[in-house]
């Protein structure tokens, strides 16, 4: 029974990696391929310099997205980085430069032990939910302060990303896609997601059992 469970777990992880490769890496490489063909064509036709520049910029952006997606996948399956403290380092590395660039003050508050191991799929989902929450703040909130809290207690991990911005409308299409993604990851982690949003800011709270 134990072995069967283990095999099932590995199978699920393989599926998750396949999905991430297909969705993130596949789409970005597909874009690079098509954009390169469009650029070659435009060069042959002596199209305006600006048109061609735009395509190369998009191409560069897609290459960056691919690198980032591969980084995330490699990190999430690396057994040397399986502790909560490793995850916290990654979260800080991701969020701090982005928040600083927009002059948003941030507060990281970590409570509970950070030396425990976290299952691969949970750390991957937790990180991607965090990324989406930060992305939301950057894109929609017009916030001055962001409060990031990570708490472990009673075999639960709770992440909260709170801001003092203008709140966001979950019916706007760009939000909807991000939120849909988040909900999917929450379900995969057997966790719960609470989203509070008002004109005084929003708070995204994710809780899941630690595995």
């Amino acid at each position: 029974m134990q072995r069967l469970k283990q095999r099932y777990k590995i199978e699920m992880l393989r599926l998750a990696i396949a999905r991430d490769l297909h969705d993130d890496v596949g789409a970005a490489l597909g874009s690079i391929n098509i954009l390169s063909k469009t650029a070659t064509r435009k060069l042959k036709k002596n199209a305006a310099q600006q048109d061609i520049n735009t395509i190369f910029q998009k191409n560069g952006q897609s290459a960056e997205n691919t690198l980032e997606a591969i980084d995330d996948i490699v990190w999430s399956i690396n057994p040397n980085k399986d502790k909560l403290e490793d995850l916290i380092i990654l979260m800080r590395e991701y969020a701090i430069p982005l928040l600083e660039a927009r002059n948003i003050k941030f507060y990281f508050d970590i409570q509970g032990t950070t030396e425990q191991q976290i299952a691969m799929d949970l750390r991957c989902n937790l990180f991607l939910i965090f990324k989406e929450a930060v992305h939301n703040v950057l894109k929609h909130a017009q916030a001055k302060n962001v409060f990031i809290e990570l708490l472990t207690q009673h075999h639960q991990i709770i992440l909260s990303v709170k801001d003092d911005g203008v709140g966001f409308d979950s019916t706007i299409a760009t939000n909807r896609n991000g939120l849909k993604n988040m909900h999917q990851r929450v379900a995969l982690s057997k966790g719960a997601l609470t989203i509070e949003s008002s004109k005084d800011g929003s708070n995204i709270i994710f809780a899941a059992p630690i595995r």
């Binding site: 969705d23 789409a27 970005a28 098509i34 469009t38 395509i55 998009k58 897609s62």
Partner: peptide, 16 residues
């Protein structure tokens, strides 16, 4: 196509 970058790239290619 749900991926924005891929959708826009492909649209640009066909348009061209």
């Amino acid at each position: 196509e749900d991926n924005t970058t891929f959708r826009e790239s492909l649209a640009g290619f066909i348009e061209d």
